[in-house]
Nucleic acid binder design. Structure first.
Ligand SMILES: [Mn+2]
Ligand SMILES: [Mn+2]
Ligand SMILES: [Zn+2]
Ligand SMILES: [Zn+2]
Lengths: 143, 143
DNA sequence: TGACAGACGATAATAGTTATCTTCTAATAG
DNA sequence: CTATTAGAAGATAACTATTATCGTCTGTCA
């Protein structure tokens, strides 16, 4: 029944997004949901291969993108593909478009942040914090 | 005199960090400081090449890393090399070590954030925000 | 004015990701 | 229960980003 409800959730997900309910897709769906932390595509691929040794890495990437688009999984900060240098050395934050990945500076004074340091291990040496406001820019909104 | 003071700043920077004051390093130093926004290494390389056509991309990368380490430039969110999937769908934030790049979840309730939406163009459709607390984990602190 | 550590350039190697193309299969109309 | 077909999977080539290697060169300092 665990597998039954999980399978039902998967089928619901697929029909909502107009996707075929394939075996590979289902295993990936299950594996991603049972993994903890912030795995890379390679790590997910390694796990899925234990259940479908013949699966292709490309299939994993393609479906992860679909899952991210559908919101069933997220992305730990937006992946820009390459290193981005910050030349503005004043304290500030960012507005990031998840469509075109454009980055806009936001003045620090637009935010008032209170942090309860108690929740962060005293052994961790905090140097700074940054806030990313994520969404869609005007151009990407009308895709 | 502009070049003189900038050159003095560069020399001070190099001696503080035990680096040789080379021509390539100086041009890169200047170019990075006059660029705006959040350029990629390739974009910086293109700019530096206008002044030193023979410079190598590897030199640009090596020096950008040195500049980031020294804090003279920053990084727009930490670069993890690959996409990282977020499997935790509850609202939360992250503690990130700039040494080993480990990512730890932080409960949303550890923060109280007030945003002045007025400062964000109404045309930008905000979907979520995430806070990254950056620093050094215990293991990396004693490098 | 050397000696030499460290910097540079060229380029090979590796990692991450995407594109292409062929084969296969889930969905579904008959 | 077939036959049809759009979309999915697999194999793999291609590409982009980044790092490593290594021979040569040069800034630094005695
Ligand atoms: Mn910025
Ligand atoms: Mn997380
Ligand atoms: Zn956009
Ligand atoms: Zn660390």
């Amino acid at each position: 029944m665990e597998s039954k409800s999980s399978s039902a959730a998967f089928r619901a997900f697929c029909s909502q997004h107009g996707l075929a309910a394939t075996h590979q897709r289902q295993i990936l769906f299950e594996v991603v949901q049972e993994m903890e932390g912030h795995p890379s595509p390679e790590e997910i691929y390694a796990r899925v291969r234990r259940r479908i040794p013949s699966i292709s890495l490309a299939t994993v990437y393609k479906n992860l993108h679909l899952f991210v688009e559908s919101g069933i999984v997220g992305e730990v900060s937006l992946h820009h593909g390459s290193l981005r240098i910050e030349t503005n050395r004043t304290a500030h934050h960012h507005l990031v478009c998840r469509g075109c990945k454009s980055i806009t500076d936001l003045d620090e004074k637009s935010f008032r942040l209170e942090m309860e340091h108690d929740h962060i291990s005293a052994a961790f040496q905090v140097e700074r914090y940054s806030i990313e406001v994520v969404g869609l820019c005007p151009a990407c909104k009308k895709e």
